[in-house]
Amino acid sequence: MVTTDLLFCFIIVIVSSIKIAYTHKTCRHGDIDTCRCDLVNGSGVIDISFGNQDETPLYKDLKGPDNTYAYNPCYAFSSDDGITGLAALGNDGYGNFGVGQQKGASWNTDESGSLFILYSSGDKYFNSTVNLFCDDQKTSNDVIAQGTDNTYTNYVFDFSGPALCPIVAPEDNKLSIGSISLISISAIFFVYLVSGIIYKKTRTGATGTDLIPNKNFWSSIPGLIKDGAKFLVNRCKYRPEADYDNI
């Protein structure tokens, strides 16, 4: 029973580590971030934390084909008629309407590998897609409002400039997910081993190698590995003979 529980714990730790490793598709430290993305492909960090921090948009009066827009990277702003928490705002000439909130902003890549940030509005009806284009030949970072796509609920902005180019940060010697998983598994095994030894020593009076918890199981592992290897080799070598009738 103890052996089964131990194996179950190991499986849970490994599966959880794999799940964490594959959860973040775009940014190493999480795709939900309003300001910064450390790209999983190792190309560097994109930091858009240069937006206004005074509740006003850095980019305003952006003329689109249909409406006028405002956008502020990283920090939320408010409209003059009381819409708060905004990343992007539209105005159709009759009034303002939110097309994206900073809260929940997610970094993504499309099928071609192009990077964009997706913002959802407070009512979850409208979205804004901000396409990011690295252009280190420019001296400023600019936003162009493209209007809605063919869904009529997603507003598209093109954000380009040198700030959208990944910057390779110096190694900070942080542990990788694999290292964390290995340390976690080793710690669990150590606790299991020490607890088992103490239990067998105090409760059963075991000595020597008999102190090892589930000794028979662990001593059988080399043999099981050997048998498994032999099975695989023999399966690969096995070729069924043709079944011919005698003449």
Rank of each mutant, 00 (worst) to 15 (best):
S176C: 03
S106I: 14
V40E: 07
N67S: 02
A229M: 13
N154Q: 14
E111D: 14
S112V: 04
D5H: 01
G98M: 10
N72T: 01
N108C: 08
C35L: 08
I167W: 00
F189W: 13
G95C: 02
K60P: 06
I83T: 03
A169H: 03
Y155M: 12
S112F: 09
G42C: 09
N234G: 00
T129L: 06
T34K: 01
A21H: 00
F116C: 14
P73H: 01
G196K: 04
P65A: 11
D92I: 06
Y155E: 10
L232E: 05
A163E: 14
E241I: 13
I83A: 02
F116T: 09
N173A: 06
G95L: 03
F217C: 08
K103S: 10
N91A: 05
R239M: 07
N216E: 13
D54T: 08
G122F: 13
V168Y: 00
G85I: 12
D33Q: 01
S120R: 09
G104D: 12
G208L: 11
I32R: 03
R239Q: 09
D54M: 07
Q102N: 06
L182Y: 00
K215A: 12
K19Y: 15
K19E: 04
G64P: 07
I18G: 05
E241K: 08
I46R: 05
V15E: 04
G122K: 13
Y152I: 11
F97H: 01
G122L: 10
D210I: 10
T56R: 10
L58N: 05
T3K: 02
T129W: 07
L232K: 05
G100L: 03
I185Y: 00
Q137E: 09
T151S: 12
K103N: 11
I144L: 08
H29Q: 10
D38A: 12
F190H: 04
G85H: 12
K174L: 08
T202A: 13
S79C: 08
S17L: 03
G208V: 09
L6A: 10
D172Q: 11
S181N: 06
A206F: 12
N150E: 14
S121P: 06
L132S: 03
F231R: 03
D47V: 07
T153F: 12
T3A: 08
K25A: 09
D142P: 00
K103Y: 09
E55I: 12
I185G: 03
I180N: 00
N72E: 10
G42N: 08
R235D: 07
D31N: 15
T209S: 12
Y152F: 14
Y75P: 01
D110E: 10
S160P: 00
F133V: 15
N216Q: 11
G64Y: 02
